[in-house]
Design a protein around this nucleic acid. Structure first.
Lengths: 197, 197, 197, 197
DNA sequence: AATGAATGAGCGTTCATTCAT
DNA sequence: GATGAATGAACGCTCATTCAT
């Protein structure tokens, strides 16, 4: 019973992501999520009291991975550079297997016009940047990255790259292996910003 | 006469950009553009025969700058690295003075569900990447950038950074000087990827 | 429950016919049907997913009578001539009591520009002609109608007459008794085409 | 000059008929007539001060033929029966060569919702019926048609047939020779109603 | 004699949401 | 826990008509 509820509730999030991927966030509607899920529109309002609340759940789902990744990185005994690799590799692998979710990486702007959604998305972005710049700071301290590098700016570069390559992947209709490409480019970036002997 | 026509038609593009910046692309409607412009909705359809056509004009306006920039760069006698700086500096300066247009940099995904818009936006992105990777190739040939660098990947990194920093600028509500920040970061990037002696 | 549904759905068809009779098929709109019925426009779309689907239901309603008539004629043990009389008498009586529906007899042409409607209306007309020419063939075999008569042409004459007299009835604002008039004229026609001794 | 005006004015009527035939009376609009004619919408209002006035001109054009036919019939020295044949033959020949105009024969009902148009169309129908029943009366007097026949009812039968066969012709997409068919059927009708020896 | 621009009303349709069942 | 019916607002778009040029 409780289980079914949870199942349906989460199922709606997955359906919403599917719909966003299929017809775009602008054309997402409760009706379409309902029919994707095979329920009535009214049924959705039993689980989420508004469309925005469903979208908040989508963002929760999208970022739930974040805490896991951040936590895992902390647990493993990796060098900072390895951590950065591990982090992006995790996302890239995940996205490669669930390509629809990359739609969410591209629609931050759309969420910005509803206060609740805006706060959530801003927090997600901020946390990711913060986490990344933290790793970079560590890397600088451990001489893996050159000392003059501004960690926040590099964090923006890395996330910006990641978002851009996700976009290219979508445009290409998933024509190249995302994980490999990200790995290569990240390697290139970290090497470029590494300390020079 | 001709003047009035051009004025209204172009004015509608500017109004559309304003509306997109204000309420978001998802909430853009012909009604809102009309009221922003102070005309009736029907009047818009005299100038653009559909909403999509107006949006195409917005993309035209957004990218019209591109050819100018590409051409100017070719004319000036600059080193490739200087050209890259000049290019991003131009956009950053422009955006800094017309912050609403940065909204357009963030909405590629939304346009992807209308074929005409999709084609246009894909072309714009491709052309920009191509132009940038061309400059990088030149830079590699002239030993300004390290030979092992993949020019297309670096182009993606640079544009990804630019898009990301525009997003951050918007989130911060234009709290930092965009041009300066871009200049610094770009300097950092190009230095990192430069040939090491 | 089920009852309410059927009621509203069928009610909309009757409302649509009322509107067509009042303001003409060209001026029929979902808005007007809605207000005739005392519901909102959106409510209509719960029952019929488009305006055309509602119009199809109107045609269904208009022709649902057909199968009943055809079937009844077959059941009763009447001479072919009596059958023809019975058939037109049934329509005339029905129309006399529900004059608004005669509007539908006059609007074939208008429906011709929507493929779905066109197919439906063409089928209705074809079936009626076919049924009538079948009866005439029988009448010829039983020597009630002269052998040289082309049954399809006579069917067209009879239906053409019926449609024309309905038009006259409408023009006259229902000033003469439709049933009686049809009966007389049909009698005149059948007598004229009967076998002469 | 005057000539051009007349030409344009009449051209608009022909364009309107073309549009009605192409997209149906319900989808006729000033815009479409204008573009069919290759002028602006505003230009039409220079010639006809409203859409209804243009439609009145269409009806004028449609029925202008009537007076010619009526007059010609009176001039020629024909028997009443021959006159009826001549009359329908003239229309059938005309329509066969200008099939678009048969659209007008089918849309009386649509015109009924604008008072001016209604009056016009009612007059046309009445005049035609009157003319036909006059010929039938003559035929009765000259023993060409049986004495017990009600001339008005037969007139309705004949015009009803004619309208119906025009409809069938349209449905069939002009698959049979209209004139021939009308001639045959009319022959059949007049023979049936003729005096029997 | 004709055009381009504009208007206000109306169109068919979709939306998020509510509520009785 | 879910459904079917309904609503009111908004959507993109087309209409007949007007008017300054």
């Amino acid at each position: 019973m409780g289980k079914t509820l949870i199942h349906t509730k989460e199922g709606l999030v997955l359906s919403a992501i599917e719909v966003i991927n299929d017809v775009g966030i602008s054309n997402l509607s409760i009706r379409k999520v309902a029919s994707q899920q095979g329920v009535t529109e009214a049924a959705i309002f039993r689980h989420y009291k508004s469309k925005n609340e469903l979208l908040l759940a989508v963002l929760d789902f999208f970022s739930k991975y974040d805490s896991d990744v951040f936590a895992t990185v902390a647990l493993k005994k990796l060098t900072p550079t390895e951590s950065i690799h591990y982090c992006l590799n995790t996302y890239a692998t995940y996205y490669e297997n669930y390509s629809a979710i990359t739609a969410i990486t591209q629609i931050h702007e759309v969420f910005r016009n509803e206060m609740e959604l805006r706060e959530k998305i801003d927090t997600i972005i901020m946390d990711r940047t913060h986490f990344m710049s933290g790793l970079i700071d560590e890397a600088i301290q451990k001489n893996e990255i050159a000392p003059h590098v501004d960690s926040e700016q590099l964090a923006i570069i890395i996330w910006g790259y990641f978002r851009e390559v996700c976009m290219k992947w979508r445009i290409s209709e998933y024509a190249f292996p995302l994980r490999e490409r990200v790995q290569e480019s990240l390697h290139m970036i970290l090497r470029a910003f590494s300390k020079r002997e």
